[in-house]
Design a protein around this nucleic acid. Sequence first.
DNA 1: AGCCATTTAGTTGTGCACAACTTAATTGTG
DNA 2: CACAATTAAGTTGTGCACAACTAAATGGCT
Lengths: 161, 161
Amino acid sequence: MTATQTPAPEADWLRLDRQICFSLHAASRAFNSVYRVILKDLGLTYPQYLVMLVLWEQGDLPVKKLGEHLRLDSGTLSPLVKRLEGAGLVRRERSVQDERSVQVRLTEEGVALRERALEVPRRIVTATGFELAEIGELRERLDQLTSTLDAAALEEAEGCR
Amino acid sequence: MTATQTPAPEADWLRLDRQICFSLHAASRAFNSVYRVILKDLGLTYPQYLVMLVLWEQGDLPVKKLGEHLRLDSGTLSPLVKRLEGAGLVRRERSVQDERSVQVRLTEEGVALRERALEVPRRIVTATGFELAEIGELRERLDQLTSTLDAAALEEAEGCR
DNA sequence: AGCCATTTAGTTGTGCACAACTTAATTGTG
DNA sequence: CACAATTAAGTTGTGCACAACTAAATGGCT
């Protein structure tokens, strides 16, 4: 394969096992897979669970605010929230003050589900096999990574000017 | 909200900013987003790029082997590889020895694309803003997490017996 | 040889992510 | 006030992930 003079150190960069992206991709899917199993009891998918977490924590919110908490847009949230509504966990109501906005409100059933969700995080922590401190550290590093990447994405986008 | 005697420490567990899953979910999407921008020049999506990485590294492979490297099944790979074929980067050929198997072979175009892909990892590392050592460390931890989670998923699945 | 379990791809259906677009309500400005 | 720009939600289309299934080929076993 096109042996150059130098031992082509750049080729090494393409090795799959060297790519952080693959590790992250795999970890994300592995997590998703564990959540799928644990959340099946609650009848929730993983992204639906995230939405419920926000609602339990913040109370009723417009779709817009939900999206800010989760970094998701209406293209993702609209159908997702409709499915939650179909499951009887939330209601969607046009705001009276601003008719553009749709409030997502927990139903009684939605509030009640929180009790059953309380055990989920513990089960997840157990599944990771990590100590709490380790998880906190990892989380911090991932958050740092995310904010740097977000900034970089903006620069790349602007770089096309 | 059902104030118990104890200050209900479990409630804290549901806080979004405490959940490793959300950090990982967000980091994964942030990475995906950076890759989307950088890979647009090559006409590849992020998972397509992963498939090409494997082929560049391992040479032609049956779909089955591809899936083992990437932990993806035929339900994901079959349409993905067809799109790569549509883009002229690979050919799919039934194996003669075993007609169940389909070899995925790089075309000349597919091989040539590797040259242009060489700069991708460097651009990604830059975008993360991390030192190489930091990335290696993070990658290691994520891989460890993935293997533990995979094992846990199996146990959970068996737990339903 | 004949039959059954396994293996390999592929298909179908559901749900998520996101870009690009539409629609309707609101805000700002001349 | 009128009209352009902005904002919120939703829609459409593409692609990925995965479960559940089908179809065809293979291998083992009696």
